[in-house]
Amino acid sequence: MIIILSWINLYSQNTYVFFGSFNLDKDAEGIYVYQLDTLRGKLSKVTSFKGILNPSFLTLSPNGKYIFACTESKTKNAGSVSSFEFDPQKKMLHFINSQKSGGENPVYLTAHQNGKWLINGNYTEGSVSVYPVLENGRIQPSVQHFQFMEGSINPGRQERSHIHSTVFSPHFDYVFLPDLGADKIRVYAFDHEKREPLTAVEKPFTATTPGSGPRHFTFHPNGKFAYCIEEMGGAVSAYAYENGKLNDIQRINTHPEKLKEDFESSDIHISPDGRYLYASNRGYENNIAIFSIQSDGTLKSVGYQSTKGKHPRVFAIDSTGKFLVATNTGSGDVFVFRRNRTTGSLKKVSSIQIRQYL
């Protein structure tokens, strides 16, 4: 079983943590909801949802009412995006609807700040789909679909385009699309008032180091800097950002210099105060790399924290910056770490076993 943390949200004085998974069977639990004790850092199960296949990635609507999921991921002749409503009073998840994702392996969803748009990235096919969303959380059929084809220098991993995330700019007027297969961070302008909101820009991509495999992407809270974690290169590339354009300022390893292979960097997040950046390493290390963020946007290595399990695919930081929650896909467990806001260091406070890896 692969366990994936998607987000943490402060909701009516309660902090809920939502986990997706590759459940491989609709009769098995696919989405899990836990409540986080914000004093002790302990997780307690609230509810779960069956009846949906492989809800591999989750994201939250801006108003906090709806959960959007990549569903039927890695499923032949399938692939979809789905919508759910969480009722905190009844402690239940309700399915709303699904739409075709445009590929067999949807891996990442992002929602516009106005709640009216959803963008999905399909990894295997290297494509992106755009969906309108109604006020009741119902996803409408896609209005745009972009297919990319070119690959890069690694024939085993980069035979073609592989879109791995879809990320809005700080003002929600651009969308960035890290393409692991092509070693590019693609970009489109976004106009939420248009029926087809994505439009081409003069500089359609930023090239990354050949063979680096850009994966996940995030912006600094001040909107001036952006950071991309490279799955294959095991590095974070830092950029100065302005009006849809990225300018390189640094590339720094997520692992010690002595480690040259057997790793796959995965996820990346910045603390709410903008002082620290965290990046996950899978494989031999299974840890979170910790960096302090300098005033010029560059990163300085602070240290590493083991995730206490195997293959940490994604993690999240709660909105207060107090806790980091890491999921280990290979061991099917979740660990909660308390953040030291001064030093950026992490200390384990609790863990849960959701289900063994299958």
Rank of each mutant, 00 (worst) to 15 (best):
G79N: 02
G79C: 01
S80E: 12
S80N: 12
S80D: 12
V81C: 08
S82V: 00
S83G: 00
S83P: 10
E85D: 09
E85V: 05
E85N: 12
F86H: 04
F86E: 00
D87H: 05
D87L: 02
P88L: 06
Q89E: 13
K90P: 03
K90M: 07
K90N: 10
K91A: 09
K91P: 07
K91I: 04
M92G: 12
L93K: 11
L93V: 10
L93S: 13
H94N: 15
H94L: 07
H94M: 13
I96K: 08
I96T: 06
S98Q: 13
Q99Y: 06
Q99C: 08
Q99D: 04
Q99L: 02
K100D: 11
K100I: 14
S101C: 04
S101E: 04
S101Q: 00
G102N: 07
G103E: 07
E104D: 07
E104A: 09
V107G: 06
Y108T: 07
Y108C: 10
L109S: 00
L109G: 03
L109F: 03
L109V: 01
T110Y: 10
A111I: 03
H112N: 13
Q113A: 14
Q113P: 09
Q113E: 14
N114L: 09
N114K: 01
K116Q: 13
K116W: 08
K116P: 00
K116R: 15
K116S: 14
W117S: 05
L118N: 02
L118S: 11
L118K: 08
L118E: 08
I119Q: 04
I119F: 08
I119V: 15
N120I: 05
G121I: 06
G121K: 10
G121E: 12
Y123M: 15
G126K: 02
G126R: 00
G126L: 12
S127M: 13
V128L: 01
S129W: 09
V133K: 02
V133M: 15
L134W: 04
L134S: 15
E135F: 06
E135T: 03
E135D: 15
E135P: 12
E135A: 14
N136Q: 05
N136I: 00
N136E: 02
G137W: 01
G137S: 03
G137V: 04
G137L: 07
G137N: 10
I139R: 04
Q140E: 12
V143T: 15
Q144R: 09
Q144N: 10
Q144E: 14
H145F: 02
H145Y: 09
F146E: 10
F146W: 12
F146Y: 14
Q147L: 13
Q147T: 15
Q147V: 14
M149L: 09
M149T: 15
M149C: 08
M149G: 05
M149E: 14
E150S: 13
E150Q: 09
G151A: 02
G151K: 07
I153L: 06
N154P: 04
N154Q: 13
N154C: 05
